[in-house]
Nucleic acid binder design. Structure first.
Lengths: 147, 147
DNA sequence: TTACTTATTGAAATAAACTTGCAATTAAGT
DNA sequence: ACTTAATTGCAAGTTTATTTCAATAAGTAA
């Protein structure tokens, strides 16, 4: 799940951003560009610091919310009460998971997932529709193992 | 995954609570008792309100943290920046998942899970140890489906 | 380019979840 | 019952995220 989004990707994103009642602004472009360079989900605070004064933290929150609603960005939750955001890649449509070290918080992108039949089985059993899932793995990475 | 913890369960929990440098207090007993009656994970705020003044909200937070550290209670995250807590049942050792309606927030307890080989495969591939996972399903329940 | 319309931003205030410091309380051992 | 230290309550403080509103700037049309 190595990212490294191409320049072409960002142009596509700009195209999606453009629309009625919606403007391409410098903060939004900068946030998208930054997300395109990151390999793992990042927090709003991290984005704000990386952009060092380019825009207000409030604008980061607002932009991320917009980008999420447009399905350009996906929100992840690593269990520390802080939302993390990642650019949705065209290959996996944002559906992938992470392996997080409980000690040093290192993040590994995971492309494996369980068989989708499990999800449809659960959906059917309980009469739910449009069922998705959030799945993250937690463990201790090789560096943090007290050998 | 129907809960309904027996009186016997709570006695066991009391036994676990008792220990060196640790005291059985009224708030802790009341929180355990309340959790024993709930079928789904509940928030600290919910517990505090249900106990209506029996103890301070701060004590609820502190007790839950203690109970979690003692593996009597498990913390869940339903993606709304609010921790939810559930008594760990002796049958599943706290390992189970939930199906949450994105509209009305109804919660269904799920006892299905994917094959554990996926987890060990991922652990081995990335050199991680003690790998666990957090998995929650989200969808639209039958009542909320716009038919 | 210039003017116009309104989406967007910044700054401060607010909200919600959770934590910390400390004096008062209370559980549990002697 | 006495003593000691864990625990609680209250107030204050953090952190994350949202709201309000005047000022700014993006997109459009002249």
């Amino acid at each position: 799940m190595a990212h490294s989004h191409s320049q072409h990707d960002l142009i596509d994103l700009r195209a999606k951003l453009r629309g009625k009642d919606r403007r391409i602004t410098k903060p939004r472009e900068e946030i998208l560009e930054l997300l395109g360079k990151e390999d793992h989900p990042v927090t709003a605070k991290f984005i704000h610091e990386k952009l060092s004064g380019a825009c207000d933290l409030v604008t980061v929150y607002r932009s991320l919310k917009l980008l999420e609603s447009m399905s350009l960005v996906k929100r992840f939750n690593f269990g520390d009460n802080t939302a993390r955001f990642e650019l949705i890649s065209s290959t996996d449509h944002g559906h992938h998971h992470h392996l997080i070290c409980k000690v040093c918080r290192t993040v590994v992108e995971i492309d494996e997932c369980f068989d989708p039949s499990l999800e449809s089985k659960i959906a059917k059993k309980h009469g739910f529709q449009n069922v998705t899932h959030e799945l993250e793995f937690f463990g201790i990475c090789s560096s943090c193992q007290t050998t």
